[in-house]
Computed example of a mutant assay.
Amino acid sequence: MSTSAWIAGSVRARALVRRRIGAAAARRIAAAPTAAAAVHLLADTPYGRDVHSGQDPDTAERALTATVLWHLRVLAGWLPPGGVEPLRALASWYEVVNIDEHVRRLTGRPTGPPYRLGALSTAWGRVSATDSLEAVRATLAASSWGDPGAAQPRDIALGIRIGWAERVVRVVPAAEAWVAGAVALLAAREAVAGSVLPAALIRRLEALLGKGTTPTGPVGALVAALPARGAWVFADGPEPDRWWRAEARWWHRIERDGLAMLTRHRFGLPVVVGATAVLTADAWRTRAALVCAARGGQVEVFDELA
């Protein structure tokens, strides 16, 4: 391990964390009377790298997440080789979105431009060149994303999310509880939808969460079977009308744990993981603020979330 490279990367990670806007600034955006006013406020923050006055809310949301991705790409350039792969795994959620939209494009639905992944790309270059769902599946199966088990859009979407979880657990052990909570929510949603999953995806889900946690029965039974590392996200109960609280709890823990990592460690991988968590949580909260503003400045809704 190159100590000097880790020190440099850690210094850069802490500097990037200072680019977040925080809860107070996000609340001011949520209180804006119109979406246009909220975007104008957001453009005057560090998210103004990509967010500009006059953008519609959807474009502004996309732009603020693109800003975070840019920060992570910059951070990757400062890290030693041993730090890039964990960061790539965490940031591969952007590739998940790209693949989702590529599938939409192949099925004739409108999409926006893909995120520019740079060195954080895993298989996007190959996936983006495919011209059928069968080719998407084959390309994913030949990569670290794994085989989604079928070439249907829903199976591909679920498969790449499981692939994200598998990769993060493998190379970022400190994120195990984050991953388990996210996958537990994913499985619960599939249970409510009554999904019939390929056997390959069932095996992969059970490998992440344990036996009895696949979405093949009542959601209550699934939640009851969850290990502690995933059950925490359902502290308010398994009912679907409480899942917005579960998602908010997930993001709050990501941010809290990330800040703790930044406090406890001077340099090294925990600093990089912590910075990534804090930056992405700030983006989630800021996107929520934009949504609240677009609905007429529903700051009370924002306060419930944030």
Rank of each mutant, 00 (worst) to 15 (best):
V168L: 10
S132T: 14
P114S: 06
A119H: 10
A138I: 04
E95K: 08
R116L: 15
A123P: 12
Q152M: 11
P148M: 02
A119G: 13
A187C: 14
A191R: 01
D155S: 13
A151G: 00
A188K: 00
V192S: 00
P153L: 02
V103N: 03
S121E: 15
V169T: 12
W124F: 14
A188Q: 03
G125Y: 01
T130A: 00
A177G: 07
V192D: 00
I162P: 09
V97S: 14
T107N: 06
G163S: 08
A175K: 11
E190H: 11
R189K: 11
V168Q: 08
T111P: 10
I99A: 07
W164C: 09
W178D: 15
A193V: 03
V97C: 12
A151L: 00
A141Q: 10
L140R: 05
S132F: 00
S144F: 07
W178H: 13
S132I: 05
G146M: 09
L158I: 15
Y115Q: 07
A191I: 04
V183Y: 09
G146C: 10
V179E: 03
A191F: 02
D155H: 15
R116Y: 11
L186I: 12
G159D: 00
G181R: 04
G118A: 12
A165P: 08
A151R: 03
P114N: 04
L117K: 12
L120A: 09
V136S: 01
P110L: 06
W164L: 14
N98D: 14
V103H: 02
T107H: 01
A193W: 00
R109S: 10
T139E: 12
A177V: 13
T122F: 10
G181F: 08
E166L: 15
A191Q: 05
V127W: 01
I162S: 06
L133S: 01
V168D: 06
V97H: 14
L133V: 02
E101R: 13
S132C: 07
A191L: 01
E176I: 11
A180C: 13
S132L: 08
S128C: 07
G163T: 09
G159R: 06
V127G: 00
A193H: 05
P148T: 00
R109T: 08
W178A: 12
R104S: 11
